[in-house]
């Protein structure tokens, strides 16, 4: 049982210790329950993560599954850096639907597998699934860029929401530039705004290995 054993260390050393602790766990063939508020530690070390909120386990799954198919907005926001983008829209989803209408444009989503009554919904997009496309009707203004070496994070303010995109570092982008935004359709999540619950779609049926 470990209770935030690395919490007090600086980022660099914490990362080294993550590797060491996991190697130790493997060597001892140990069973470990580990508590942390650091999502990177959880993602880097765990076989299974339990995401807790107000005493309730919101999702229990392997790291990649939690990242790809968050069960709720809380999970989606908690895991990932920068976190998942949320684009609010009003509408309903019928089982089998493959598009939604948000921010004045039709957006393709993984085929819905359940009905959801008309109401406030949220489209969830990971930063690496945001693409720049001049053809898109969803426009926004570049608010800031953050160079990270391999990639860069571009913050775009659109009418409905502020979105962050993770793009390769070699694309030149100016602050104040107006860009069109597109999303990778097979990767999107849809949530109910009130409960935060994810709506079941084809995204939840991707076969998983290892």
């Amino acid at each position: 049982m470990m209770d935030e054993p690395l919490g007090a260390l600086d980022a660099e050393f914490r990362h080294v210790m993550c590797g060491e602790l996991r190697a130790l766990h493997n060597r001892l063939k140990a069973t470990t329950v580990y508590v942390t508020h650091d999502q990177l530690e959880a993602m880097a070390m765990a076989d299974t993560i339990a995401i807790m909120n107000h005493g309730i386990i919101e999702q229990l799954a392997p790291p990649q599954e939690i990242y790809d198919t968050p069960a709720s907005m809380f999970v989606a926001d908690f895991i990932g850096s920068p976190p998942m983008n949320f684009l609010p829209f009003r509408g309903g989803v019928r089982s089998g639907a493959t598009t939604i209408f948000a921010a004045g444009t039709r957006i393709a989503i993984p085929a819905a597998r359940e009905d959801c009554a008309e109401g406030e919904l949220i489209l969830g997009v990971r930063p690496e699934h945001v693409l720049f496309s001049d053809a898109s009707k969803l426009k926004g203004e570049v608010y800031g860029t953050e160079y990270l070496g391999t990639t860069q994070i571009v913050t775009v303010k659109s009418e409905k929401a502020t979105l962050k995109a993770r793009l390769p570092a070699d694309i030149a982008i100016r602050i104040g530039e107006i860009v069109g935004l597109d999303f990778k359709p097979q990767k999107l999540s849809v949530f109910e705004a009130a409960s935060g619950r994810a709506i079941r779609t084809a995204l939840h049926e991707v076969p998983r290995h290892g």
Partner: peptide, 30 residues
């Protein structure tokens, strides 16, 4: 060892007694 960080996976590869780390996109479940 594979560190699954969500947006990318860090592959720890041991080559001739040296460890190196390689970041791979998430599409490497195989």
């Amino acid at each position: 060892w594979i560190e699954r960080l969500g947006d990318q996976n860090h592959l720890h590869v041991s080559v001739a007694d040296r460890d190196l780390v390689y970041a791979h996109g998430p599409g490497c479940r195989c």
